[in-house]
Design a binder for these strands. Structure first.
Lengths: 154, 154
DNA sequence: CTCGTAGTTTTGAGTTCATCAAAATATTGG
DNA sequence: CCAATATTTTGATGAACTCAAAACTACGAG
């Protein structure tokens, strides 16, 4: 499967250059793939890029997402029961996520209250809060019947 | 190092039995240790229990925290840059966490707004939301000087 | 346009965290 | 105290990610 070309490919090149990163086929392809497939794991990215770039290696993908994360071109997400870290291209809009506890499916949720970091807790033990990441956990429509079979109380 | 005995040890036994779990030395010790050392990793627990229970193995610790998590006697936390999953005994009060992005230190934060799940997002893609977990990320007082040295903009 | 340098990718090995399976052991109801 | 079964232990296995050095490539200088 190849990536959708409707997203202007040049914009990634510009963003890479603006971050002081060199433009390589792997980085461009990873950004395009993540834009089309948000919440992908490193393994997902490797599988998605292997057709276009047969030489790509798992380590390269790890290097790429690591570098892109450090320069905030992608955002890394760590969730329970997901096996591995996920990545997405939406980096500066302070959105959040819903995760189905049954199938693990992840979807975006727009900022809940006001502006980033969205919430102002009382006692943060003297820490300077930079961001607030919210993960809603629940059950998606497709999984509710499954859950009801196992646990009629729901 | 041994655990603090001010927390009634019997209460853990009761909670284990109420959950249909057998009372074993490992489970009791793990609960006591986690109560004194919240946000511990499996490795932390293993190290903390080895003095009292020399025969304990890493696999036993994984079994224990897995079983206790399933029965909601402990809660598992997955955070970025923490290396491994963390566990804590506060399970039913819907509290949240602050994490220092420099040293990784984790502290508790009490529920921010109203009742659990604290927040009601607009579009959750049809999912039934059960919980909302908030992770604040920031810099703790001890690390701010360090950060200023590296990045004078802060 | 060519070359050189420094940033990237690749190759290969290694580490950590966690899971699976089966044998040994311990808990608890009877 | 015994038996049934849950739990721990032992050992093997796997997945995700990191580390290090060699091969390669982007891109600016000349």
């Amino acid at each position: 499967m190849s990536v959708d070309a409707t997203v202007t490919p040049e914009s990634w090149d510009e963003q890479l250059r603006e971050s002081g990163l060199r433009v390589t086929a792997g980085r461009r392809a990873a950004l395009e793939f993540l834009d089309d497939h948000p919440h992908s794991s490193a393994a997902d990215i490797l599988a998605g890029l292997s057709d276009d770039i047969p030489s790509i290696s798992a380590q390269s993908v790890h290097n790429i997402v690591h570098d892109l994360t450090r320069h905030e071109l992608v955002r890394r997400i760590d969730l329970p029961d997901s096996g591995s870290a996920r990545y997405e291209t939406r980096t500066h809009d302070n959105h959040h996520h819903v995760q189905c506890v049954v199938c693990g499916r992840i979807e975006d949720v727009d900022c809940v209250v006001g502006h980033a970091p969205c919430l102002t807790p009382d006692d943060v033990h003297g820490m300077t809060v930079l961001t607030a990441e919210i993960t809603f956990r629940g059950v998606c429509p497709e999984c509710e019947p499954t859950l009801r079979d196992r646990d009629p109380q729901y």
